[in-house]
Design a protein around this nucleic acid. Structure first.
Lengths: 342, 342
DNA sequence: CTGAAAGCGCTAACAC
DNA sequence: GTGTTAGCGCTTTCAG
């Protein structure tokens, strides 16, 4: 590997002169600079980041810690952040946790060891104690998911409102037996979403039925598929279902298609998030479209400012974005209402 | 930031003893090791990667250079590689090029500056000369895409065969006016796929019509949408279309749905790749399913072996995987054939 | 305008 | 079993 020493030797100069020339120091003559650059070019010199960091240069690596890059939320986030970070000279280190807190910890250890400039994280349900400590040592911001132990800087969605709006849409159509499929309440977003669903029901005086709530692993499409099948087998099945995560939505759509359920005649469905393909499904999926790209870019811009400026105070900052209902064909009035109006 | 020196000071030891204790060197007494570990724990010591690298430790960073993480091919690749690499102690640096060779060059400069252990790359159409030089200095392997200048280590698809099979399926149904929408021929995969399409036609004695070939940017769903609309406006439109990339497929499906084209009655469609949602579309998309996950994990495993073993020779190694046709509802016999058989 | 020397945090000879 | 020392590649005083 060629170093500044090699250039210095070839040019009969000192390493410091070479270093200054490469850094475009005004004290160095243009002629010398030209010779140095020339030589560097020829030898294929590439500055050593590690050495610079030892001299106090800050890392240009930002960690992105997420459950699964195949989830459309997270690849959208990765894409937006990657673009913004690259524009500012940062590189994105991809760290998938697979919703495992030990894997999460390992990634954070690595990021800490490489003295990452910062971390953007969608944490697991209950991050390891060491993860909390490690993050305290690095500038960081939470994205989409939020855990109190990791500080009060967060960009995400108004999860409660999202599910309240989705559920309200079904209530307005006349549904009362509305099921919910989502993540368990130990995940903060899961809790908020469930709460939104419940709130919408109680706002309309509909009493919630616990056996219409199906909770399972947040990143599992399997859970979506199985949950909807279980619901339809109930003695008094729901007339509508509202979904609380993207993977669950995908699973439910697959399951309903496989079972040949007639949507919206036999069941109305409101999805969570909008992605390529949801509009293709059956009569078109009515869903809550969520501005993930915008959330990610706001987060990225805010975080960069924080990285570049002295981290003055640890001011709390939270930003909750809201989505909007995209009505398509998968929701309609329930059978009872239709009979009545006929 | 706490260093080995701090630990040494606190314990009245030398830095080397501390270093050895942390490295679990057999020469250090268990008691000292325990004290050191204890102190490290308390102080929140995390080893400095940069310093280790300066002492000759190799980087544990592998760059993943791809056009766009939102493409299902590439997020599948990222997920598989990430899992495999993490298992071996490597971290994945995500670098999106957006199909821009200058961005690609910038990422490679960064990876080179951080002395990345290696690079997995799906190169742009014609990588910059400097990119070629930079890659020569790092172990690397090409994935899915291939450019001769970047060496002969490659994992990907048998692109020609994939499109030959797709086209043959349509020919067997009786189509002769078969259009192709794909990437331009200056992208090696684009060339191969076009060639496969042509070969299938000529194998059956069908003369190719140049005006049924629509080429455009490989990562643009827009191109897919617009190309299929253009094709259907031709004076003698095709009775079938075969697709040559995932984004083009997505665009075509959106376009056909928006236009309300009756598939397969008015047009048969064979997609490229299979992803969540393709089976939901209209009558279900007939498509070529491609084992991207397997390609990525083979690539990852092979590459890790290469990284760990001395890079003996630069033996060429190429692996082309093949997909299989998934027949669903979007293909049928052409109108002429239907009339004849009626 | 350029050079010599120190030191970032760590490891590995080389002492004792 | 532990300490001393040198040096990885670079930047940055401090000298000329």
């Amino acid at each position: 590997m060629v170093t500044t020493r090699h250039i210095a030797a070839q040019l009969q100069l000192s390493v410091s002169t070479v270093g200054r020339a490469l850094a475009d120091d005004p004290r160095i003559s243009e002629q010398t600079k030209a010779r140095v650059r020339q030589s560097a070019q020829e030898l294929g010199y590439v500055g050593n980041h590690a050495a610079r960091m030892m001299r106090g240069a800050k890392s240009n690596v930002v960690g992105l810690v997420i459950p699964d890059i195949r989830n459309s939320f997270y690849f959208t986030v990765a894409h937006e952040l990657s673009a913004i970070m690259a524009g500012e000279g940062y590189q994105l280190m991809l760290a998938e946790t697979n919703d495992d807190r030990l894997i999460e910890r390992r990634h954070l250890r690595e990021l800490s060891a490489s003295r990452a400039a910062g971390v953007v994280i969608a944490p697991t349900t209950r991050p390891h104690e060491e993860s909390v400590t490690l993050l305290r040592g690095m500038p960081h911001v939470q994205l989409l998911r939020k855990h109190a132990s990791l500080g009060a800087q967060w960009f995400g969605l108004d999860d409660r409102r999202t599910l309240r709006d989705a559920t309200t849409h079904l209530l307005e159509l006349g549904h009362t037996r509305i099921a919910y499929i989502g993540a368990p309440a130990d995940l903060p977003t899961g809790r908020e979403r469930l709460e939104g669903y419940r709130q919408a029901l109680s706002d309309r005086g509909v009493s919630p039925r616990p056996n219409l709530v199906e909770q399972g692993p947040p990143s599992s499409t399997e859970h979506g598929r199985e949950a909807v099948l279980r619901l339809l087998k109930r003695s008094s099945p729901p007339t509508a279902v509202v979904l609380g995560s993207v993977p669950h939505t995908v699973g439910v759509l697959d399951g309903l298609l496989a079972m040949g359920v007639d949507v919206p005649t036999d069941l109305s469905v409101v999805g969570f998030g909008d992605q390529s393909g949801f509009s293709w499904w059956g009569p078109g999926l009515t869903t809550i479209s969520l501005p993930i790209g915008d959330v990610a870019s706001s987060c990225g811009l805010w975080f960069i400012r924080r990285l570049n400026n002295p981290p003055a105070a640890n001011d709390p900052y939270e930003s909750a974005s809201t989505g909007w209902l995209v009505p398509r064909g998968s929701t309609a009035a329930p059978p009872a209402a239709r009979k009545r109006s006929a």
